[in-house]
Design a protein around this nucleic acid. Structure first.
Length: 891
DNA sequence: TCCGAGAGAGTTTTT
DNA sequence: CTCTCTCGGA
């Protein structure tokens, strides 16, 4: 067979010479189904890329015959990069992508057969929620009782298990016709009835809008392959080798998709497999009616996405699902020290029903794990910051070699603050995503509406953004017209002249909107290959940018910046993409993941990385801090009851521990504020599961625990929950190095670009960066802290010392809150009255407003409890305030 | 229609 | 605490 000139031929020695026997075997295996059980750090990406190279050069396959699936774009990009290095530029046109983008590609090409036009929109969670809300409003569903989110979760479950809306409807609500108007959900005995109806309606409207959601990308591709034999035949003929990474995280739909693409079941139906008989089967490339060869790589101990429908049985039952499958286990770890692996092994061993597996390493014992028990989250964060500063200076550890991990995004706040205080550069991964910001979503909605005018959700979203006097009233006029004709919202706008009873003003504004969209469409059509120019045009012409630029609100300044960032992203896209289109650009924005924003492995960001444990999967760092090791935080409180959910938490712990290469820290806090409410936290059970000999506790018990003789016997008095102690100023790590005070350090690090990614605004740190520090101190008036104060009030501002000689200074200053009585919370006071009397105010008086700041009274109207005060706040404008409830204070 | 203010509800993890 | 929704007033 003639080889592609772009393909660098690699000899067998080059491909497997430096591998261990199991790895080499996995690379070379010939057979229809191969499961590589790849423990953490066992070099699976290496094996995967080598295997692909092997298939190309040794089996003589064409690059186009390979489909390699990963879970994130970043993983895909990385694999492609490694492949390029290994086999040359040919890797660039191979199908190496995520499940989702592979499906987009298939659906763009062949989706027409199942009613999807190629410009279809991909709805993100927010879009989907909007759609469900619209439906709920139309069907008169109480969204307080049945939240759109809960409904969507259910719909997602259906889709992940390939339950069609048709079958759901048949079972639970056979009388419902999707798209019928004026239907109101009445009484239903079974909640499934409601779900089924919404599901059906939801799919109906998605179809009408030429849109799909994330789950549909998989589900509808399966539908396509199952219902269109010619399409299925095309892909089955095309892909002869399918490789799936992170197989333990596949859900049922993805599992079926792989089978369908490979043509496994078609083949089984046609006749019995010939491959079991022959010892060394020929590569399928020569016999195209054979199913494709499947390689899956995964580790059932790292399955952490069950909440999203991942079914761990896919990997556990692989050998049963694919008869004749070969399993190869990779247990040698090349990443971590033995100490770290021992900890990981010990923790995961507590999970029931798993195949025993023991990672080992040749790297030696290494440092002990370092433990630290803090009094509260702030102190935990401060200690971490101090420790990072220390190892950076004393041990020369680069910031970019350090990662801080936590269970939930909410935990990042205190860590961020501590790093800022310590002057350490960091980068936050995840949290509020760039593409989820309001201004970005608005801009994208325009683009989406241009590409796909049928997209009712996005079209309706932008109708009145920026404000152009087209409110719910105008919207409903159009909706009524278009619904009655079974057509799209845009069609209604487009045929505005045919609609009767539109108020003149509204009609005029609607016409302006219509013309705007027509012009933008025309512009987009002419500049389709230049998404960045379309973005610029949209931002300008719609007034999206202008509105923000004129705004006084400082937040809007960063929004402007984000919008210009969007334009840069578009420009970058069109530079890196040979056949760039606007639709293509939108696709990339729809399918980005948190981890995609991480710099690739050979880039040194020079910053400490902070992220959730989920995001951290697949990554590795020399130094890892595992924070918030408390019952209720990690394992998460919602997961502690259920055995299988707890197992998943434990796998998450396993993932976290095995991210560390050289040194692992585990930290916890005795008190963690959640929602402004402080709670006592017990140490995580996962800490107990790590053999004690592996952990070197720098501080084992917290101050309070010592005071009370440990946490083992007595349960806590609720009053202790109210520690109001964010203002810890000094503390010493009991046995730790020289006692120094952390947290006040400010001279390390570059001192610039905190929390920003790529010099721009990906992270949350960029907008309103310095808002709210030490929030704990402002919690006054809660019953807990009030009683705390009365009991410990004498120690306020002074030092409490405990046996270990630890010195902690706290300040519990109650913030002066506007004229509310002692012991009454400000909000409770507002509810009744703020106690202000209109008689006390006169024109010319100065007042301060919580939001607007200083102002001058320009008018008073005495209407008893409904008295109104008019105040000129200067740059904030003149406001009329209901005196009774206004957050103001007289000066 | 727009705006501000107040009430209320919600936080696990995410392709 | 923070975001969203609802309500009342101009």
């Amino acid at each position: 067979m003639q080889q592609d000139p772009d393909l660098i031929a690699r000899s067998a020695t080059e491909l497997v010479g430096d591998l261990n026997p199991q790895q080499a075997q996995a690379v070379q295996y010939r057979g229809q189904a191969l499961l590589i059980g790849a423990g953490a750090g066992s070099g699976k990406t290496r094996v995967l890329t080598r295997r692909i190279a092997w298939i190309l050069t040794q089996f003589g396959a064409w690059p186009s015959q390979i489909l390699a699936i990963t879970f994130t774009n970043k993983a895909a990009a990385e694999m492609r990069e490694r492949l390029s290095a290994l086999i040359g530029p040919v890797a660039e046109h191979m199908w190496v992508s995520t499940f989702h983008s592979a499906c987009v590609r298939i659906l763009r090409r062949d989706g027409k057969a199942i009613g999807l036009n190629s410009g279809f929109s991909i709805y993100d969670t927010a879009d989907c929620e909007r759609l469900v809300k619209l439906i709920a409003a139309d069907l008169n569903i109480d969204v307080k009782r049945y939240t759109p989110r809960a409904i969507l979760t259910r719909i997602s479950d259906y889709k992940n298990n390939l339950k069609s809306w048709q079958s759901q409807l048949k079972t639970y609500a056979p009388d419902y016709r999707p798209g019928q108007r004026g239907y109101q959900i009445g009484n239903f005995g079974d909640i499934e009835v409601l779900y089924s109806i919404v599901y059906a309606e939801y799919q109906h409207r998605l179809a009408a809008a030429n849109a799909v959601d994330f789950d549909d990308l998989i589900g509808r591709t399966v539908e396509l392959l199952r219902t269109q034999p010619d399409v299925a035949a095309y892909y089955r003929h095309k892909f002869r080798y399918i490789l799936v990474d992170e197989y333990q995280d596949t859900n049922h739909a993805q599992y079926v998709l792989v089978r369908e693409l490979a043509g496994v079941d078609e083949h089984n139906a046609a006749g019995q497999s010939a491959l079991a008989a022959s010892g060394a089967p020929a590569a399928p490339v020569q016999m195209s009616q054979q199913p494709a060869w499947i390689t899956v790589v995964g580790d059932s101990d790292q399955s952490i996405y069950a909440f999203r429908g991942a079914d761990i049985r896919n990997i556990q039952d692989f050998e049963r699902d694919f008869p004749g499958a070969k399993t190869i286990m990779l247990e040698q770890n090349y990443r971590s020290t033995q100490t770290i692996l021992d900890a990981a092994n010990a923790v995961i061993a507590n999970n029931q029903g798993r195949k025993p597996k023991k990672l080992w390493t040749a790297l030696g014992k290494g440092d002990p794990i370092i433990g630290y028990a803090a009094d509260n989250a702030q102190q935990e964060a401060a200690w971490i910051a101090g420790e990072i500063a220390r190892i950076h200076v004393e041990e020369g550890v680069a910031y970019s070699d350090i990662a801080i991990m936590y269970r939930a995004n909410a935990q990042s706040r205190s860590l961020e603050e501590a790093l800022i205080n310590a002057g350490l550069p960091y980068q936050l991964v995840g949290g509020t995503k760039f593409y989820e910001r309001r201004e970005i979503k608005d801009a994208i909605a325009y683009l989406q509406a241009i590409v796909n005018p049928a997209d009712n959700v996005n079209m309706r979203r932008i109708l009145n953004v920026p404000k152009r006097g087209l409110g719910p009233r105008a919207e409903s006029i159009i909706v009524a017209w278009s619904d009655a004709r079974g057509t799209t919202f845009w069609n209604g706008v487009d045929h505005l002249d045919e609609i009767e009873g539109v108020p003149t003003r509204t009609a005029k504004q609607l016409a302006a909107f219509r013309d705007l969209m027509r012009e933008l469409s025309a512009f987009a059509a002419e500049h389709d290959a230049k998404p960045s120019e379309i973005v610029a045009e949209v931002l300008q012409r719609t007034g999206l940018l202008g509105e923000l630029q004129c705004s006084e609100d400082p937040q809007d300044a960063s929004r402007v910046e984000n919008l210009s960032q969007l334009q840069s992203v578009a420009a970058e896209f069109e530079q890196n993409t040979p056949d760039a289109t606007l639709a293509g650009f939108l696709e990339t924005t729809a399918l980005v993941a948190d981890s995609d924003q991480l710099p690739s492995e050979n880039e040194d960001s020079g910053k400490v990385t902070m992220m959730t444990l989920h995001t951290a999967k697949g990554l590795e760092y020399p130094v890892v801090f595992l924070t918030g090791m408390e019952q209720g935080t990690f394992p998460h409180s919602r997961a502690m009851e259920d055995a299988s959910e707890l197992s998943e938490e434990r796998r998450l712990a396993y993932v976290g521990i095995t991210r560390a290469k050289r040194r692992l820290y585990v930290t916890r806090a005795a008190v963690r504020a959640q929602w402004g409410q402080a709670n006592e936290m017990m140490p995580s059970q996962f800490l107990d599961e790590i053999p004690d000999t592996l952990i070197d506790w720098k501080r084992r018990e917290t101050g309070m625990e010592r005071m009370r003789g440990g946490w083992s016997n007595n349960s806590f008095d609720d009053e202790f929950g109210g520690w109001d102690d964010s203002d810890t100023t000094t503390f010493g790590g009991s046995s730790y190095g020289s006692s120094r005070s952390y947290g006040s350090r400010s001279s390390y690090g570059s001192g610039s670009s905190y929390g920003s990614y790529g010099g721009s605004s990906y992270s949350s740190g960029s907008s309103g960066s310095s808002r709210r520090f030490g929030s704990g101190a402002s919690r006054t008036g809660r019953s807990g802290s009030a009683s705390y104060r009365s009991r410990y009030g004498s120690s306020s501002g002074s030092s409490t010392s405990s046996r270990s000689g630890k010195v902690t200074t706290r300040r519990t200053t109650p913030k002066s809150s506007s004229s509310a009585g002692f012991g009454v919370s400000p909000s409770a006071a507002l509810k009744r009255d703020n106690g202000l009397n209109i008689a006390d105010f006169h024109v010319g008086d100065k007042v301060t407003h919580d939001q607007y700041g200083l102002g001058t009274v320009v008018d008073t109207v005495d209407k008893g409890p409904k008295s109104v005060l008019t105040v000129d706040f200067g740059s904030s404008g003149v406001k009329r305030l209901m005196l009774r409830v206004a957050p103001i204070e007289k000066l």
